[in-house]
Simulated scan of single mutants.
Amino acid sequence: MNIKTIIIDDEPKAIAILKNKIARFCPELDIVATIEKPQDAFDTINELKPDLVFIDIAMPGMSGFEVLKQFSIPNFEIIFATAFDQYALDAIKHCAIGYLVKPIDNEDLVEAVDNATRNITDKNALEKNKILIENLGIQKFQKKKIVIPSTEGLEFVKVKTITHCEGVDGYTKIHFIDSKPILSSHSIGHFKKLLDHKDFYHVHKSYIINMIFVERYLNDGYVVLEGNTSIPVSRAKRTDFLNQLKG
């Protein structure tokens, strides 16, 4: 399977290094263009219609995010390459699109390309990239979407619909206010990172709750969510949790 690929980076040396690594470790990628001026990316991508785009984030004149915002319906897979932008990494993680930290590690490159190849094959790139573009324009965390790998495939859900996450034997059951739970193969630790925001609180080793659904706190150490769901709060976290409720 030949994957049409474009590299966008304002540094010629970075492009050369990535091309060399791709030739050595990812021969299935067919590099059809390299772009040093991000302002040229839109026209080139529309003309060549790549399957995969490697794009730097911090570039003069136009960031990688600004390049992507030009596409109302992106239909290519994206792998970001960045040296430092932690906000960008967080945004990318929230929609499960690949990223590489410079200097690029060979194993990380192979893993990112493998993931991108699966997404292209499964035709998930369009939906996931739409979520990325939406998330970049959203300031409030509750309005964002996240991608949840489940036992049946990939689920695209709005953060504001999640009431709580429940760790179950190394898996995580995600509960919603308006639909049936989803069982994910990821551990509760994965969702602690994914939902790292003041609106979510890790009340117990097996539970993360969405604070907007809290209705009351019981003296015996349970918090009650909308729908009359009781969740235990660990003794070690009760004082801090109560402070969060007051604040």
Rank of each mutant, 00 (worst) to 15 (best):
N2E: 12
I3K: 11
I3R: 11
T5F: 01
I6N: 04
I7P: 04
I8W: 03
K13Q: 12
A16C: 11
A16T: 14
A16L: 15
I17P: 03
K19A: 05
N20T: 11
I22Y: 06
A23C: 00
C26M: 04
E28K: 03
I31F: 04
V32R: 09
T34V: 10
P38D: 07
A41M: 05
N46R: 14
E47D: 15
E47T: 15
P50F: 04
D51M: 05
L52F: 09
L52V: 09
L52E: 09
I55V: 11
I55H: 01
A58K: 12
G61K: 06
G61R: 06
S63G: 10
F65G: 07
E66I: 00
E66N: 08
Q70D: 04
F71Q: 03
S72I: 10
S72V: 12
N75P: 00
F76H: 02
F76Y: 07
I78S: 08
F80S: 04
A83F: 03
F84T: 06
F84P: 00
D85K: 10
Q86S: 08
Q86W: 01
Y87A: 06
D90N: 15
K93C: 03
L100I: 04
V110R: 13
A112W: 01
N115H: 09
A116V: 04
D122L: 13
N124S: 15
N124Q: 15
A125Y: 10
L126H: 12
L126F: 13
L126G: 10
E127Q: 15
N129E: 14
K130F: 04
E134I: 00
G137Q: 14
I138C: 13
I138G: 00
I138H: 03
I138F: 02
Q139T: 12
K144S: 04
K144C: 01
K145M: 11
K145G: 05
I146K: 09
I148C: 11
P149F: 10
T151W: 01
T151D: 11
E152I: 09
E152T: 13
E155L: 05
F156G: 05
V157Q: 12
V157I: 07
T161S: 12
T163H: 02
T163N: 05
C165A: 12
G167L: 06
V168R: 06
Y171G: 00
K173C: 05
K173P: 00
K173D: 14
K173Q: 13
I174R: 08
P181K: 06
P181W: 09
I182A: 00
I182D: 06
L183M: 14
S185I: 01
H186Q: 12
H186K: 15
H186T: 07
G189L: 11
K192Q: 12
L195V: 09
D196H: 12
K198T: 12
V203A: 11
V203E: 09
H204T: 09
K205Q: 15
Y207I: 01
I208Y: 01
I209N: 05
I209Q: 07
N210W: 02
N210L: 05
F213C: 02
R216P: 00
R216F: 09
R216G: 11
R216S: 15
L218H: 08
L218V: 04
N219H: 10
G221P: 03
Y222C: 02
Y222T: 08
L225W: 01
E226V: 00
E226S: 13
T229L: 09
I231H: 00
V233L: 08
S234M: 06
R235T: 08
A236D: 14
K237Q: 11
D240R: 13
K246D: 13
K246A: 14
